[in-house]
């Protein structure tokens, strides 16, 4: 067989193959690809565990509100003369809106990041544990796409969790305490509408403060096939960092702890707003998201899926 013959035959067969393939080419529609995100949201928010976490978060403002109401029933101010307790707690009796800030300040150090750590830690490890990960990947979900979807869903949970705290606090505050104009930390007065806007802004900043933990949890989630182990590790890391952040001898490291600038959200209640801590916080969260997001991607896209 001459070379020309061979090449023409090869060409013909490759053409036949190409046309056969073209007939059944299945293209990924860019809109259809969002179907996984929708499915992921539905799956996450339909789980009892997610609902239980949100329920606990919703209960915190109720507890704080009721406690303040009882304590100040005799006319004294909440938080005592020393001004202890979470930020803004002494102002709640004057204005229920402050319960939003107090509740966020009370849940941000532990309850909120713990809930995010549970959801993020379980994101991939839980699927691996249940065996569903292999079926998602042969569907094929695509590893990068699945990882991005998981991260987007955890971020959606960060926002949902924060809003649950804020809305619950607003409802309890409106129910138990008067509403109206409020005094900022700087002593100026702003209207109730402006106050609501600030409250929403603060909720968004608090949600954004959790993106670092979310990326960290997702990275841990790529390391193991046990959802419980990933959740425990993430929550353990969170607690460790919080403790280290309290040790003065480690002050050189403090600016690199993801939780270090968390409470800077209170600066949104100043007039004018102090942006320094806020931007440092958001920058640090972006750094954590980039570093641990890349690590998670590097790990997950090359990992042997044996579960």
């Amino acid at each position: 067989m001459s070379r020309a013959e061979a090449s023409s035959r090869a060409e013909a067969s490759s053409r036949a193959q190409a046309s056969a393939r073209a007939e059944e080419t299945r293209r990924a529609n860019p809109l259809w690809t969002l179907g996984l995100f929708r499915s992921e949201l539905l799956t996450t928010f339909r789980r009892w565990r997610t609902l239980a976490l949100l329920g606990v978060l919703a209960a915190v403002p109720v507890l704080v509100g009721v406690a303040v109401k009882i304590e100040t029933g005799d006319g004294s101010t909440a938080g005592g003369p020393g001004g202890g307790g979470p930020a803004f707690i002494s102002q709640i009796t004057n204005n229920g809106l402050f319960l939003v800030f107090t509740a966020l300040a009370a849940t941000l150090p532990f309850f909120l990041p713990m809930a995010v750590g549970v959801v993020a830690g379980d994101a991939l490890a839980g699927e691996a544990n249940a065996g569903t990960l292999r079926y998602l990947l042969v569907a094929p979900a695509g590893r990068s796409r699945l990882l991005l979807t998981k991260y987007a869903t955890v971020l959606a949970f960060c926002l949902a969790a924060t809003l649950v705290v804020a809305v619950s606090a607003l409802a309890v505050g409106a129910l138990l305490f008067p509403l109206g104009d409020l005094t900022t930390i700087s002593g100026t007065r702003i209207g109730f509408g402006e106050g609501l806007v600030r409250a929403l802004l603060i909720a968004l900043v608090v949600a954004a403060s959790l993106t670092g933990v979310a990326a960290l949890g997702l990275f841990v989630s790529t390391l193991t096939n046990s959802g419980i182990a990933a959740m425990a590790t993430t929550v353990g890391l969170l607690t460790t960092v919080q403790i280290l952040d309290q040790i003065p001898q480690l002050s050189a490291l403090h600016p690199y702890f993801f939780s270090h600038y968390w409470l800077s959200f209170a600066d949104l209640m100043r007039e004018p707003v102090h942006w320094e801590g806020l931007t440092r916080n958001l920058g640090l969260q972006a750094l954590y998201a980039a570093v641990f997001g890349s690590a998670a991607w590097a790990r997950f896209t090359t990992k042997d899926i044996t579960a």
Partner: peptide, 9 residues
């Protein structure tokens, strides 16, 4: 859910 995971479905 499994069908939604397939971007070509």
């Amino acid at each position: 859910r499994y069908d939604a995971a397939d971007p070509t479905a």
